[in-house]
Design a protein around this nucleic acid. Structure first.
Lengths: 209, 209
DNA sequence: TAGATTGTTAATCGATTAACAATC
DNA sequence: TAGATTGTTAATCGATTAACAATC
């Protein structure tokens, strides 16, 4: 493992960089410097330089910058694009469907291989090419396919049950969108996504203008 | 304005606290101490205490803790529950609908008053009680209703146009879910929400186990 | 009272930013 | 060469955590 470890904040910025670089590539821009990138993304110049230095294999050239294609390859490599992680999603409602259709997971090495739902209307359909199965099949599916990461997008009252089944199926990390606290053993990693949290910051900013 | 200012991180945690406290209230639990709360939420004890101290009007009682109902009222007050902010959303697809239906915005003082879409099938419908109008009416609606915060959940290729219209309508802060970079004047606040970003952190965690 | 919990001051930690020599 | 940009070391900043006296 030659991969360096980067800070959590850097890790969060990498998908942004990746997306920005892909846009550049579409405009046939071949190289990019940290200062320009920083200006475009409204970030500090040194911060960008450090982030890039942490993931880039090939050094940047003074006066020129970095090769866009190399940088994209390096970030994708770093984020695990070449080591794809299979993920399941439980709850094929609006939010679930939105996530299944979201472009951008693939570039960071995340692939949704199956979705699960209780609603007979949704079972045996497909969303963005991902099959929707009955939640009854969840545990077996996870065990058979060695799934380690699950996403929960069911209503709050069903979330704990889903969580328990995921863990029974061998899942060790859960991305929880249900607005509720999940009870799990300490060795299970739960990341709660609270939509209100992001908006709270934005709204507060606004109040202080 | 007697409101103290709190750190950005504290601000992000407040909705979590709020949600946790509401769950306690449903179980008829009357008081809660910072250490218990910290243990339940997997946070540092002092951190919770500081956060609570920053927003609580009434001091906690040694050996007892805080009154749950008071704390809820204080956090809601702090986050602007009593100073509701009207917000519009553009793009009534899966993600848009998911957000419109999301419980939890109300408690932090955010109210979706209207959604906008181009699809005739969606126009003049309602999502969770929020009317969906034609995007043509966006500018006028915002001006007339003095909207300052807009949410963009349209595909990437339409996002910049929507952004421009929102600004034309007087919006000064934008929560952008479209996977693209928006070009705006410096006085407009854009918060890009990158779903891949959250998942990148979780996935990396998993790789390092 | 004894002890848990509070609020606050001080120490630590991690990330950001500034400064600068090295390089093409 | 001159100058923009790189990579890196040092200083700053902000948030977290530890320590502790005050309190019910």
């Amino acid at each position: 493992m030659a991969e360096k470890t980067v800070s959590k904040h850097t890790l969060q910025r990498l998908p942004y960089y990746l997306h920005y670089l892909q846009a550049l590539q579409e405009e046939n821009i071949v190289s990019i410097s940290a200062p320009v990138m920083a200006a475009d993304l409204h970030l500090n110049e040194v911060k960008v330089r450090k982030d890039l230095a942490a993931v880039s294999r090939t050094a940047g050239k003074p006066k020129v910058g970095f090769a866009v294609d190399k940088l994209i390859a390096d970030i994708e490599e770093f984020l695990g694009y070449n080591n794809i992680r299979d993920v399941v999603l439980v709850g094929a409602g609006h939010l679930g469907r939105a996530l299944l259709s979201y472009k951008g997971f693939e570039a960071i090495g995340i692939r949704f291989v199956a979705a699960f739902d209780n609603d007979p209307q949704r079972i045996n359909t497909e969303v963005n090419g991902v099959p929707v199965h009955s939640t009854n099949e969840l545990v077996d599916y996870c065990l058979q396919n060695k799934i380690h990461l699950g996403v929960i997008t069911v209503p709050a009252n069903g979330a704990q049950a889903v969580c328990d089944r995921l863990i029974e199926g061998g899942v060790v990390a859960i991305w929880n969108f249900a607005p509720c606290r999940l009870t799990v053993e300490d060795d299970i990693l739960v990341q709660n996504e609270n939509m209100a949290s992001s908006l709270a910051v934005l709204s507060e900013h606004l109040s202080n203008r």
